[in-house]
């Protein structure tokens, strides 16, 4: 092997230099104010898939009908460097008005809603009702053999409630994803 070949024998033989991320991942809640125009959600989601970012939850709804403005709440996971990139890449999208990292800015109020269907008889049925009461979940549908509970709260509370319902006859769950807002008198820039 000549000196030159030796010099070049670096695995892997690639035209790219590959890096591994070493920082630890964090979970942040972002609020994104956008024009409510066709394709805007696809643009936001496309950004996450194209750049390989992790999106855990996404909630979107129009918030100012007259101005045609929607607000998207995104729970994303990544290293601080990736989260910084997510914020600036979102800001770069043309229909995006503003982006706030609620987790960075403080301790935001976060709520999500879940509808939880539980099927059970006798003691299990009573236990489910009792637990629902303790979690302040409301019964929104009742049959002789089943309930649908509506529960609102932080993600962890909802997770916990669902865990407890499992042995009591959990049938199915639907969740809205998080809606989040900052504390105090300030509004987010629209």
């Amino acid at each position: 092997m000549t000196a030159k070949e030796d010099h070049l024998a670096i695995p892997p033989a690639s035209t790219y230099f590959m890096v591994e991320e070493k920082e630890t991942e964090e979970r942040h809640t972002l609020s994104v104010v956008v024009d409510n125009e066709p394709g805007v959600l696809a643009r936001v989601i496309g950004l996450f898939t194209a750049r390989g970012y992790n999106i855990e939850q996404l909630t979107v709804s129009e918030v100012h009908h007259d101005r045609g403005v929607s607000r998207i709440t995104i729970v994303a996971k990544g290293t601080p460097h990736i989260l910084e990139q997510i914020r600036s890449q979102l800001r770069r999208l043309v229909p995006v008005h503003s982006v706030a990292d609620l987790t960075l800015d403080g301790d935001p109020i976060e709520r999500e809603l879940a509808l939880v269907k539980v099927k059970g008889e006798g003691e299990k049925r009573v236990e489910a009702l009792r637990l629902a009461d303790a979690f302040r979940a409301r019964v929104v549908d009742a049959h002789t053999g089943s309930f649908v509970f509506e529960i609102t709260g932080k993600t962890r509370k909802v997770d916990q409630f669902i865990q407890l319902m499992k042995p009591l006859g959990l049938i199915e769950v639907v969740r809205t994803g998080v809606a989040a807002i900052s504390r105090g008198p300030e509004a987010m820039k629209v």
Partner: peptide, 14 residues
Amino acid sequence: IPAGQAHNEMLLGE
């Protein structure tokens, strides 16, 4: 500069 190398490890024309 071959893959995975730094600026001061460049290959010059032989």
